[in-house]
Design a protein around this nucleic acid. Structure first.
Lengths: 174, 174
DNA sequence: ATCGATGCAAAGCGTTTGCAGGGGT
DNA sequence: ACCCCTGCAAACGCTTTGCATCGAT
């Protein structure tokens, strides 16, 4: 499957949308990142490490611009293009996920376990929910659905669940 | 709540993301559309009717460009900008929903009942799932979640559930 | 006559890419 | 020495907006 990744093209691609690899331990150690990148033919550069570190440490899932501003503190000469390329590398190797928003801007998530999201319609921010992820949720909701899709030739790689709403007190904030 | 809508601004806004009004009967009759638009201070023009009609009749949820191409058959002089403005009007009055995609292009949905989606990672298309929507799903998954969010001042307006995957036979198609 | 809607063109914005120079292997 | 990566700038594509004109009330 790794061979199907393409670098820097537009459009839907394996791993670009809400895919979380089935890794178990979150964290920001360097070695797993290096293995993931180099295993897929990418180099593990300081820029990519910095982008990943910020992603793994961020409270809400940041936009590319957020990451750029944060990483510039440590690497002042980094360019926004490099941040985008680093994010692409992280997403295509599976150590990060790209989250779509209705306004067209993407947000990135370095958590390596499946989880649910809470989305604020006012600010566009996305945070994680504490609820335990249930791998069998779809089968519980509708036992016949997955077999039917499989019979149609559709391979289900995962599901996304998010709550949407807004903070009542701070209309524009958060 | 209608008063909080703003026309033609970027960024997250009430109703822009995955909001479905609690209407019961789908369909493409003119009067409900007229009532929704005029009730919110919009005119019910032939262009907006045509955009809505195409949206309501489309199999997969179309992009703005899809709608433009389709509506041009009946209204050759319509402009893409008018289509965008019509879609914005439909979304802000609640008769359509805007769906985010990972590649940044938006898709639109005129179904007026809640439902789940199936997203193809190859083509970016979105289709509806036959599974019955469960309004109490979140409470069933985690009974303490909604009270906790409410206590934090977050008003949950809905949830989105979508299956992601791809068709095995036709990698680029659909 | 007023005021919103249309259609065209241009601008805006997030994102991607071309390319020359630099650095790791 | 090779090839990937970086950083800059320019291009790209989807979406929005300014504005003159049109049309409904």
């Amino acid at each position: 499957m790794a061979g199907t990744f393409r670098k820097f093209r537009r459009g839907p691609v394996f791993g670009l949308y809400g895919m979380y690899p089935a890794m178990t331990s979150p964290g920001l150690e360097l070695e797993p990142l290096r293995e993931a990148l180099e295993g897929a033919g990418w180099r593990c550069t300081p820029q990519r490490q910095a982008v990943y570190a910020h992603l793994a440490r961020a409270e809400h899932h940041p936009t590319a611009e957020d990451v750029y501003q944060a990483v510039k503190v440590d690497i002042p000469r980094i360019s926004l293009a490099t941040v985008y390329k680093a994010l692409e590398a992280l997403v295509s190797t599976g150590v990060a996920a790209k989250l779509a928003a209705a306004d067209g801007t993407a947000r990135y998530d370095a958590r390596r376990d499946h989880h649910y999201h809470l989305r604020c319609l006012h600010s566009g921010t996305v945070e994680d929910l504490p609820t335990r992820y249930d791998p069998d949720l779809i089968a519980k909701i509708d036992p016949s659905l997955l077999p039917e899709l499989e019979a149609k030739g559709f391979r289900v790689t995962g599901y996304r669940l998010e709550l949407v709403g807004y903070y009542e007190d701070a209309p524009g904030a958060r």
